[in-house]
Design a protein around this nucleic acid. Sequence first.
DNA 1: GGGCTCCCTGTCAGAACTGACAGCTAGTTG
DNA 2: CAACTAGCTGTCAGTTCTGACAGGGAGCCC
Lengths: 251, 251
Amino acid sequence: MDGILSHLVERLDQLRTQDDFEAFLRNAAEEMGFDMFAYAGGRLAEDRVTARTVFQRPPITMSSFPDDWLTHYANEGYFKDDYVVVQSLRAILPDQWHAERGVREIRPRQAQIMREAIDAGLRRGFFVPIHGPANDFGLLNVICNEAEGEFSKIVERYRHEVHVLAVHFHDAVQKRLPASAGRGARLQLTERESEILRWTAVGKTSWEISEILHIAERTVNFHVANTMRKLGVYSRTHAVAKSISLGLTRL
Amino acid sequence: MDGILSHLVERLDQLRTQDDFEAFLRNAAEEMGFDMFAYAGGRLAEDRVTARTVFQRPPITMSSFPDDWLTHYANEGYFKDDYVVVQSLRAILPDQWHAERGVREIRPRQAQIMREAIDAGLRRGFFVPIHGPANDFGLLNVICNEAEGEFSKIVERYRHEVHVLAVHFHDAVQKRLPASAGRGARLQLTERESEILRWTAVGKTSWEISEILHIAERTVNFHVANTMRKLGVYSRTHAVAKSISLGLTRL
DNA sequence: GGGCTCCCTGTCAGAACTGACAGCTAGTTG
DNA sequence: CAACTAGCTGTCAGTTCTGACAGGGAGCCC
């Protein structure tokens, strides 16, 4: 991974603003022969209403997709059904997609999205899922509308570069850009609260925890209540699930 | 990422047994100029007794470390304090470590482990954390005891290759080797059970879920009870936490 | 000293959960 | 058809949780 990649990764350190990062991505994609790119990264959580996996807060996004496609995509809530997204949430490795060829086991809704994507000028591409600790998640999608043969060559040539670059890019963006720290970051559990929450997560009752920690059962409930208040939830089960999704508790 | 890497990644597809994978890793490490290697991969969970992050079941491990060091390491439970491990659990990006130089913010126990590592012939190395969906986790550590200058050159030269290789390797191992599927794999929740568990995870009470799904509250409790039985736990909180850690439920 | 955070403890009423008893329908498979 | 699975429903006793009422001390910073 000589020339291009090392150079790109080093340049990442100098980027400061979202515009810097976006320009960087634009250049990188272009250099490798891709037509468009889209990145989204943030922290995952379970939606309160639909109980599906979504970003906790709006993710940091950068893309060169056509504006009307982005608007349409957002309005229709395509994110949760998009084949590329669904795959990325499940897979570790990057892969390619072809809107025209379709994919085995595709659902009608996904096929619909892909058809509309073609109209928006997104024919085929290569996507990189990025998974980090504590529900940290990112997705880079680079598009190349060349004929399939040409596309394959480019992917073959650059897939590892794009892979590494995506991971470094995501890490830099999430560490550097303030939006990702944002509002939720202030929330902090005390030492005792985390400790009790961890025990709760492994099924201990308040009484059992009080025995383990040599404190009163009432005190355990006190800390649990404070934790629930901080997290804005009304049951310890939800508190455990939410603190996991916020990265406050590890399984 | 031309020559060596593409070739290696393609070869991964042909490996079948644990010995295949281990030999593969040995060759790859050697080709790049590393002296030793160690890989561990599996699914993370919270320890029942200590409430710390550990592998759910013994991870798949492969290494060329000296046997007595591995034994000592296992006996002393170094895994949970090892600097490389702790870092990997938190970070997305690969990094290097130097036992002699130490590290800022290192705890006494970690320093102790590093000193002993030197005696075992592990002076410095490069580690790659691998995070996947649903607490999937792996760690590749390659050692190079050359002088620091030489070491830096090798790392500089190969870090991206090692990075990509580690991710592909982990994915292949966890998909291919049966030990990772193993005992826990049989466990399956029905559609209804998962659905109700997801609602439980976002703090809904049995009654609320019964309203949402238009079924009796009793039925909700029935499914929750079945889920708990399958997971071998005695509270819904634990069931939610465990199903998340098993990858049965996403946040 | 006053204000702050963290940790600790008590009681009590009402809501929620847990595990036991019980039995029903519908669909699949050998 | 028998056996199985998935889903559904009822009651009831006992346990656990939740949120409200209280109160205590130790340590830190201005």
